[in-house]
Design a protein around this nucleic acid. Structure first.
Lengths: 240, 240
DNA sequence: CGCAAATTTGAACGTAGTCAACAAGTGTGG
DNA sequence: CCACACTTGTTGACTACGTTCAAATTTGCG
């Protein structure tokens, strides 16, 4: 199977009708494989439109005047990419592959048609954009009001949750510089914080893998909020 | 007139049909006046639903374990409030009035019906949620990668833009502590930064009002990006 | 006018950044 | 298959931006 489609994501929240499933399947076009480092949209360049990440890991970031970078988001399979390019002609952020990835593109017009023909799917897309909004505000609170150690810990926990691993051990797939640019720190300080988490026996590291030794304690020091994955979707319109 | 309705906002982006205008007018119910300090939703309490801010200024924030506060967003007339309560039963953030405000509530079911009956309005609501998403990522980059002076400057510029004042002089309506909680700083340091901006002749302050003396220079030190208010809405479905 | 909230200022402190050097991986081509 | 180059990770010494604490002053209200 070609990774996780948006239809798969939707099916995780609602029971899709045949017609809805067909519409979602039609939505995802041109399947492409990108190698690590390839970007599908670049800040201030004409937007390359909407995509779905099928497989692999991506990130989006902005570059500031002084050359520093802020990573805004990591994308996991099933995530929509470039929803902001729907309304801005120039991309507001750069999106690149962190591993080999598979992406499918979605035509703007096709999305418009979906709003017309499948109101329930449209409402679900909107609902899921709210999930992402809450994730962004969680991150905002972390950057504004928590310590370096907490931010690094929160990133580890977020990855574990989003990668959907039950094991306490997983491969992060990020360099310390990438962790730094996501948490608003320097690579040097990230290194010290990882070491500190390790010394406090909260995590263990070996050959690129992270093991959570005391998840409860990590959640505490990281000020991490695990958001409910069950959404209230009772207000969604009738399916077609 | 009862302030700025969501219909007014929508009309700024698209030419509303009579039927669309009627639907939007029906959407906004129970008009309420709240005095400064009143909250309409509290973190972790059952959500009070969706609202439109008609008049005045509001903010939403989260409180962390240690009692510190991160202000996530300021709301201006015409803004939707509590879109996240659509999907989470408990509010993820607290929303309070910063001045005397007028709000109207929107029923969840009515929004669902709007997705069904007025696909173009639904798509516009989604598009506007993307504008807010970009504003959040701008803020994230500011907190993660810019100096205290830049963050305070950016907040001043954001308020000038959102208040829609052409004059360089306007009343901010925030305490320095509120500025601090929005920018991830302390009130003491915000005070020093404001003073510094004043000493550098970028702004002037008098009795709660701010005057921008050199906006171009302020934009530069603040690393401020003024987002295009013209949106690409060509993909919107046909109106009904 | 009187009180509480908000602002202002100074001094000392601490978290995270900077700079620099070295070590350990990683990948590539000879 | 190894040698070399480059990226990534690690550590130490020093610096600096922003915090903390405390006290004085101003402002806005009732």
């Amino acid at each position: 199977m070609p990774g996780k489609s948006f239809a798969d994501v939707a099916a995780g929240y609602i029971d899709l009708t045949d017609s809805e499933r067909a519409a979602l399947t039609r939505l995802e076009e041109r399947r492409r494989v990108l190698r690590r480092g390839t970007s599908i949209q670049r800040e201030n360049e004409a937007g390359s439109g909407l995509h779905v990440l099928r497989r692999g890991l991506m990130m989006s970031y902005v570059l500031l005047q002084d050359g520093s970078r802020q990573i805004l988001r990591f994308m996991f399979p099933g995530d929509l990419i470039g929803t902001a390019t729907l309304i801005y002609d120039d991309a507001t952020e750069t999106t690149v592959a962190l591993s080999e990835v598979v992406v499918c593109s979605i035509d703007r017009g096709a999305l418009g048609a979906m709003f017309e023909e499948h109101p329930r799917l449209a409402a679900l897309v909107f609902a899921l954009s709210q999930v992402e909004r809450v994730a962004l505000t969680d991150r905002l609170a972390a950057l504004g009001r928590t310590s370096a150690k907490a931010r690094v810990g929160a990133l580890l926990l977020e990855f574990r949750d989003r990668l959907g691993v039950e094991r306490p051990s997983f491969s992060l797939g990020l360099t310390q510089e990438e962790i730094a640019d996501a948490t608003g720190l320097t690579a040097v300080h990230v290194n010290r914080m990882l070491r500190q988490l390790e010394e406090e026996a909260l995590i263990e590291r070996a050959s690129g893998r992270v093991t959570m030794l005391d998840e409860r304690a990590l959640v505490r020091v990281a000020n991490y909020v695990r958001r409910d994955t069950r959404l209230n979707l009772a207000w969604l319109p009738k399916p077609r």
